[in-house]
Amino acid sequence: MKIRPLAVEGAWEITPQQHSDPRGTFLEWYRPDLLTEAGVTPFAIEQANISVSAADVVRGVHFADVPPGQAKYITCVNGVAWDVIIDLRVGSPTFGLWESVLLDASDRRAVYLSEGLGHAFCSLAEGTTVAYFCSTRYAPLREHTVHPLDPDLAITWPVRTPLLSDRDAAAPRLAEMLTEGRLPRYLQDV
């Protein structure tokens, strides 16, 4: 398993070693012991989610209040997802920076996001299935969204017309969230 830090502080790309033969493929997609060895703090899994999306769907940008925040470990088990990690933590050295990782059922990469980071993805194929572990359960009053097409984020989505949920389409812009003090604060010990 190869674990590589991303430019967004607190995010990592994980590429598993795949073992294939005529019967198919086997891989270990989550190994907390190897995350620890790489300097990543694994978390107790409180919830596991799966989303299935049509092509061109953009989900996010979602984040949770810190504390407690919500760390995530994400992979794509079918189709192709262009996964985006955005640093929304006020005071972070990488605040406002975003990075993308292509998750698919071929390379079977995963991404790890620390608490306070924003997450979104774009489905590039019909039936794209994304699975993720979360460090906390869904709590609607602690969970928020920033408009994924906000020009201040400057995310270059790889589709012409992203399909958004009503919630994401009505989400505030980053500047509004910042002015209102609704973004998470950077905590170095998280």
Score class of each variant (00 low, 15 high):
T161M: 14
V80F: 15
G79R: 06
V66M: 02
D65Y: 03
P140S: 10
L102A: 08
A125H: 13
N78Q: 15
E126P: 11
C134Y: 03
S123R: 00
D104A: 04
D150M: 10
V159R: 01
G60L: 09
V101W: 05
V111M: 05
R89F: 02
V77Y: 06
D83L: 04
N78G: 14
P158A: 05
V90P: 08
P68I: 11
R160Q: 14
G118C: 10
A120W: 07
Y138W: 14
V61D: 07
T136F: 10
A110P: 02
T129Q: 13
V130M: 10
C122V: 00
T129R: 08
A139Y: 07
A81N: 08
G127D: 11
P140V: 02
S100A: 15
F121A: 03
P93E: 11
Y132N: 09
L102D: 07
S100E: 14
V61E: 07
H62V: 08
A71T: 07
E126H: 13
R59G: 01
V159Q: 01
Y138I: 00
F133E: 14
A81D: 05
C122N: 01
P148W: 08
C122P: 01
P151H: 03
D150P: 11
S106W: 00
A139N: 14
G127L: 09
V90I: 12
L141K: 15
E99Y: 05
L103F: 12
V66A: 03
G69N: 11
I155L: 06
T156I: 09
T129S: 14
S123F: 03
I85Q: 08
R160L: 13
V90F: 11
V66P: 02
G60N: 09
V111L: 03
L102C: 11
I86H: 02
D104N: 15
S135L: 01
A125F: 09
P140F: 08
D87R: 07
H147D: 07
A139E: 13
C76F: 01
G96K: 00
I86R: 00
V77L: 14
A110W: 01
W82Q: 13
S92Y: 00
N78E: 15
R142K: 13
N78L: 10
P68Q: 10
D65K: 12
V80C: 15
V84W: 02
P68C: 11
L88S: 02
G116A: 04
A120D: 10
G116T: 12
P158W: 04
P140L: 05
L102W: 07
A139C: 12
Y112V: 03
A81K: 06
K72D: 03
T145C: 15
T156R: 14
G91C: 04
C76K: 00
V130I: 13
T136I: 08
V61C: 08
L153A: 11
A64S: 15
V130H: 04
L113T: 00
P93Y: 09
V101Q: 04
S100G: 15
V84C: 11
S106C: 11
I86V: 15
